[in-house]
Amino acid sequence: MNTAILFAVITLSIIGVLSAIILYFIAQKFKVIEDPRIDLVAELLPGANCGGCGFAGCRNFAENIVKNESLENMFCPVGGNDLLKQIGPVIGQVAEEKEPTIAVLRCNGSFANAPSKTQYDGVKSCYFINTLYPGDNACPFSCLGAGDCVVSCQFDAIYIDETTGLPVIIEEKCVSCGACVKACPRAIIELRKKGKKSRRIYVSCVNKEKGAISRKNCAVSCIGCGKCVKECKFEAITLENNLAYIDFNKCTLCRKCVAVCPQNSIHELNFPERKASQPASGVVEEN
């Protein structure tokens, strides 16, 4: 009995030692010499691998920063400016400040505003529905509400509101990685400047059809009337293909355009309530 145990112990030990030696040589042969700074940078990164920086994961982002020894055009939307300030010293560069952005849904075609004219029965994928037909509200630009953006969001920052059928972006959770922008087959979600005190003004519509047609499908579509363009003194609003667009770099958040929009399709977010003398015509979103 004792010899059996002894035998087993000795055999196993020999195998262990042999394997260790083999492993050592293999490790030597396939050793990859890596810049130690990559690890330093990678440790600073959030590790969410969301792809918001445009690289294949956090590690790849770190590798590229170290390789180029530059922070130009490198931005991690999750960590933001604070993170880049920390990375800067590691490679001896100073990061440029970048204004934080946030995902914004530019469609308000809720069940109430754009009533359903058909009923979809099939796989829940905006991508697929988009290839099939314009959507239940018949607007070929509107949100399809099947939640591709919800699936794409790694930060649980989007959910579909059951009563409106539209996705809602949770401001506190959104890190502006842009995954939903890529996931949306209709390019409805846009990354816009977060703005002072999170205040934002944007046209909540991407419909390029003529006003008469888009209005048939949706009560709050942009009809391209151009009133907001005339109202804006900062040339922040442009009108193209029957659709107004507010340039967030030029917008001063004066809110005048919101008041003149006949379709209530310009939205203001996180503003204090207007005084009674200045009635608001814009729909203030909950939040």
Binding site: K117, T118, Q119, Y120, D121, V123, L132, Y133
Partner: peptide, 10 residues
């Protein structure tokens, strides 16, 4: 809205 047409893929 009882009579909405149903849409689905073939």
């Amino acid at each position: 809205m009882a009579n909405l047409l149903t849409i689905s893929g073939s």
